[in-house]
Amino acid sequence: MRAGTLRSTAYDDVPYTRGGTVDRTEVGALVQSAVDGDAAAWKALVEGMSPLVWSVVRAHRLSDADGHEVFQTVWFRFAQHLGRIREPDKAGAWLASTARHECLKVLRGLARLTLTDDPQVLDRASQERTPEETLIESEEAADRAERVRRLWQELDGLGERCRQLLRVLMASPPPSYGEISAALGIAVGSIGPLRQRCLRRLRARMDARGAL
């Protein structure tokens, strides 16, 4: 059974090939198995693709409530469309694109209602320590955690395009450029240069803070 191996395959074996044929073929096979009723294949799809869908939601800065509903809508619709998806090996791009369109609808709906600048819409993930963080005991690990927190904060200062791109880029396993393109509505060819520019800008900001 290949089910359940999606994450490790994409993450460990081909981390920087970005949607090289190996793992994407596997996605197609998982979709086919799920169509045939294989719950383990569905589970592998959910576990392998949820971080991508979540990253698209977060890249669009929805409120928690809206973001949760978009996430659910995307997966409900994916389940509904399973047997009808034309290119099963591009299911990641299908999910990313559906998430993007639902996010844009939410933003459009909000704009239509009022022009409030809801502070809740801002990311606020770094306020409290997660259980994982509280487990950290050694000083070294604490330094690392501090650097991670700073990285997270610096993302907000990068400008919207970079913040969006990096938030989707950092999904796990690493999304393909086709998926990133579907997630953000930008051309595949512009992703590489933008990625480089944004990562270097982020690194410069970290250097400026003396955090390296």
Binding site: P15, P51, W54, S55, R58, D123, A125, S126, T130, E132, E133, V148, R149, L151, W152, L155, L166, R167, L169, M170, A171, S172, P174, R195, L199, L202, R203
Partner: peptide
């Protein structure tokens, strides 16, 4: 750096 961000996202978000 990208990999570091990926780990940060897994922990913080």
């Amino acid at each position: 750096l990208e990999e570091e961000l990926r780990q940060a996202a897994a922990v913080l978000d």
